[in-house]
Amino acid sequence: MKLSKLAQASLLLSVSTTSLVFSSLSFAEQLPETNSDQLTHVVSAGQQINHSAAKSQQKVNRFTDQVQTKLQQFHVVTKEVDGLSVYNQQMQAQLDSQLTELAQLAKSMEEVSVIERQISPLMARMISTLDTFVDLDIPFLPSERTKRVEDLKTMMNRADIAVSEKFRRVLEAYQIEVDYGRTIEAYSGILPIDGKQMDVDFLRIGRVSLVYQTRDGSHLGEWKQSSTGSGQWQTLSQDYRLGINKALRIARKQLAPDLIMVPVSFNETSTQAE
């Protein structure tokens, strides 16, 4: 360990004092006895100086230890300060990122307000279009489809339903209408035939065919759709009875899917499809 200047000076003083004492003792042996008292006094003074130097050296050593302890503490604190500096830089980067996100959120909220003001008229137009479409479409499930549209109209006036939920329900209604075009379905209903209200089974195949059959199978009919959206029921030949019965059972999942023979109606034309 490198000694401080004070420690070096103390050590030099100690060595010098010791040398002086030994020199005095050696010199005292050579002097006559008459001078022994004086030499004894000199030796005693030298011993006192040496003792004082030893105490000074102890103080120097103690101060040196304290300096080393403080230096170690300084190094520890310096490392902590460096770590805190890096931590503060990271926190500042995160804070800057959060401020940027807050600004983007504020901008998005402003845009949402604009979109919300525009989406309500859009939904109203969508519901009106859907209502017109149901009126012009082939008349399958008329009560169910009409009720769905009316529910949407009522929903638009309710304040307890969020705009997002309203939009979801409108899209759901559109999705249901789209699905009708690629499914087969059988359901029961009442239809006036020859001036009588009769129970019939309806068969819908997408939007290309809508037929009915009375429970006893005595009457068959198909819906003829015109290009203007209007249409009417027309009687079918009994030749379609087996095909319609088979299609009804397939629609009700009573038979596995298979080829069926049913009439296809579109724009006042009728063809056969397999």
Rank of each mutant, 00 (worst) to 15 (best):
L3D: 15
S4D: 05
A7E: 13
A9C: 07
T18C: 14
S19W: 15
S24V: 08
Q30L: 10
L39C: 12
H41A: 10
V42C: 14
S44H: 12
I49W: 04
H51Q: 15
Q58F: 03
K59Y: 06
K59S: 10
T64S: 09
D65C: 03
Q73V: 03
F74P: 01
F74Y: 11
D82T: 00
G83A: 07
S85A: 07
Y87C: 13
Q89P: 03
Q98C: 09
A106H: 15
I115C: 08
I119V: 11
S120W: 02
M126I: 12
T129K: 09
F133E: 06
I138E: 01
L141I: 15
S143K: 12
R148P: 03
R148W: 01
L152Y: 11
T154V: 13
D160W: 10
E165V: 09
R169M: 01
L171I: 14
E177P: 01
V178S: 07
R182A: 05
I184D: 00
I184A: 00
E185S: 11
E185V: 06
A186L: 13
S188Y: 06
G195I: 03
K196T: 06
M198R: 05
Y212E: 02
T214P: 00
H219E: 00
W223K: 10
T228M: 04
G229L: 04
G231P: 13
W233Q: 00
Q234E: 15
T235I: 03
Y240T: 08
A247E: 01
A251E: 05
P257N: 05
F266G: 02
T271V: 09
T271S: 13
Q272W: 01
A273C: 09
